[in-house]
């Protein structure tokens, strides 16, 4: 049964390869597809960022942030780092944004808070100038030209990262884990009130 399936899929694959070689003059090349993907991710990042900054409602702003994170994950994919892209999604979208949501939901927010009002013109101008800064500095560097696609194979597989973290970069790894431990301990300490019913089982 499985041999039959194997042969079926192989022949199907051959069929598709032949179709591709026939259609290659008409199909977009890989570079074009990469550019298309890049444009799409840039669109995601910029639109997400605009929504995050300009939304009247904090929850919608967080949604915009999530869209931005998706765009950044796409950028990682384009940089031949699928592991990092998935980690970006796992950590930022799955954990950090949920945390932000909690912070928003459990605080009082009225519909006429600071974020709902249209900002002052002077603030707008300052924000625009602040955004221009990195653009002016990094723009020429990018413009000098980079290849659209790379022929490098992805090297950020879990095995390579693990080896690197535990041999070359062992000290930073341990330091980061200590920082995380301190952060967790601090969080527990801040929230814990001994003997009070509020501290435990809040929800």
């Amino acid at each position: 049964m499985n041999d039959v399936l194997d042969q079926f899929f192989h022949s199907l694959g051959h069929l598709f390869d032949e179709a591709e070689t026939c259609l290659t003059p008409y199909l977009p090349g890989q570079e074009f597809v990469a550019l298309l993907a890049f444009a799409f991710y840039v669109l995601l990042i910029v639109s997400g960022g605009l929504v995050a900054v300009l939304a009247r409602n904090l929850v919608r702003a967080t949604l915009g942030l999530i869209v931005t994170f998706f765009g950044v994950a796409g950028m990682y994919l384009l940089l031949a780092s699928p592991f990092l892209a998935l980690m970006q999604l796992l950590i930022y979208v799955g954990a950090v944004c949920v945390l932000i949501f909690f912070a928003i939901m459990l605080t009082k927010n009225t519909s006429d808070g600071d974020e709902a009002k249209f900002p002052k013109i002077s603030n707008l101008i300052l924000a625009f100038l602040a955004a221009l800064g990195p653009l002016v500095v990094a723009g020429p560097l990018i413009y000098q030209g980079t290849k659209a696609i790379t022929t490098r194979k992805p090297v950020d597989s879990g095995a390579n990262l693990g080896e690197g973290l535990l041999s070359i970069d062992l000290l930073p790894f341990e330091l980061i884990s200590i920082v995380l431990l301190v952060a967790m301990a601090g969080a527990v300490f801040l929230a814990y009130r001994p003997g009070s019913k509020e501290g435990s089982a809040a929800l």
């Binding site: 929850v59 949604l63 999530i66 699928p82 592991f83 998935l86 980690m87 999604l89 796992l90 979208v93 799955g94 954990a95 944004c97 949920v98 949501f101 939901m105 597989s157 879990g158």
Partner: peptide, 20 residues
Amino acid sequence: GDGVILILAFAGLGVLSNLL
């Protein structure tokens, strides 16, 4: 090659829908 991590990453999106 990263099947497990893909599954874990997108499981977080279901959480978002509950919140929304």
